[in-house]
Amino acid sequence: MGDDIFCINRRKFIGNSLVAASGITVVSTGMLAAGTASAQTPAAAASAGCGPVKLPAVIGYPNNNGVLVERVTYPARNMGTTIVANVFKPAGFDEGKKYPAIVVTHPFSGVKEQTAGLYAQHLAERGFITLAYDASYQGESGGEPRLMEVPAQRLDDISCAIDYLSQQPEVDPARIGSLGVCAGGGYAMCNAQTELRVKAVATVSMFNLGDARRRAMGQLSYEDRMKRLRDAGEQRSNEARGGPVRLVPVVPESPAEFTANTPDLYRQGYEYYVTPRAKHPNSPNRYVFSSLPLQMAFFPYDQIETISPRPILMIVGREGRYKILER
């Protein structure tokens, strides 16, 4: 891979979640391997509306368990744009009841129809109302230029999802949890440090995006880091002058790009995001290169003590063996 490919993606995890808090039950759900993706035409967020969900709601996992899936939109408050999300409601949903709810945050470069939707579906099957959304600048949600990865906005996207859920009469605002997958786990953990409406937070294969961008999993020297920052700054200046936006790959485009030094993390990212297993037209395996400095400035653990005494569940896996760390 070239210098421009800075992969962050989810570890291969056939495992399980999530969340415990005051009245929120810890559950364990088996992830199923995703199958062939169906083509889906991206819609402009400005014209997106509430109503029936665009199918498939989850790539490769048919909804055969009576879960109700609804497409919704709500404001990205700080941007003046629109977030597009899928809300999953349990089978036998009762409008007169109050349900615990979970916001599910997708990985870097992912969309709601991939792993975030899969977790949302499984958790809804177990009695939660869940919400899987496209991050700002990505998927069907608003924001320009497309495919930006802006950690500060990613954090507020979670709060915007809580804004939406807290207005729904069927949601118990005292039982809202947050789940993030891969880089989404870093965002969920960081957001919970100051977002006290989150009553419990859980992560699956959490990835520290800031550290990954600064050190490239220990493979990036300080001098190379500074060069990348200079290059990104020059590219941003070029875009400000009207030049084209530069997009770079997130994970390898094919096994031909693998080398002996390619980490399993990169290989597994290709297997999930670039093959029919979970490939989606709204997730083109690209991000805006000039957003790299914003990613390097992300330090997700600086106030982690402020989550206490709320529960944390971190699910990690390596070579098929999984260890649950609770705090």
Rank of each mutant, 00 (worst) to 15 (best):
L155V: 01
D157G: 00
Q295N: 08
Y222S: 12
L229P: 02
T306S: 14
N208W: 06
G23S: 01
D134I: 04
T262A: 10
G269T: 00
E319R: 11
A44L: 15
T25H: 02
D3F: 13
R11H: 11
E125A: 09
A85C: 03
G15L: 04
I312T: 04
M217G: 07
G142D: 07
V104A: 09
Y222L: 13
T262L: 04
A120R: 03
G218W: 08
A256E: 13
A116G: 10
F207A: 05
L292C: 05
A232K: 08
R175T: 05
N261G: 12
A120E: 07
R215A: 14
P249R: 11
Q167R: 13
L209Q: 02
S38V: 15
V288T: 14
A33N: 15
G210M: 06
R154A: 00
F289P: 06
R236N: 14
C50L: 05
E253Y: 03
N65H: 15
R175V: 02
K98T: 04
P276H: 04
L131M: 12
F299H: 02
R310G: 01
L118S: 05
I83V: 03
Y133A: 10
Y270E: 08
P75W: 10
K199A: 08
G180K: 04
R225E: 13
C7Q: 02
L32V: 14
I129A: 04
N191Q: 05
A256G: 08
V58H: 03
M314R: 05
R77K: 15
C160P: 06
N191F: 04
N78D: 09
S221P: 02
R321S: 12
I324V: 07
D211E: 11
I102T: 08
R327W: 09
S38C: 11
N78I: 05
F258L: 08
A212M: 07
R236A: 15
P276I: 01
A85I: 08
A76L: 08
V104I: 09
A43C: 11
I8C: 08
V26S: 05
G110Y: 04
K54G: 10
L147S: 11
N261P: 03
I14A: 15
R228W: 09
H106F: 05
G80M: 07
R154S: 03
A216S: 09
I312V: 05
R197A: 06
P276D: 08
R310I: 06
T130W: 10
I83S: 08
L55Y: 14
D264W: 13
A260E: 14
F108T: 00
G15W: 07
A48V: 07
R126H: 14
L265S: 12
Q138H: 01
M1Q: 06
K89F: 09
Y322L: 11
G30H: 14
V248I: 15
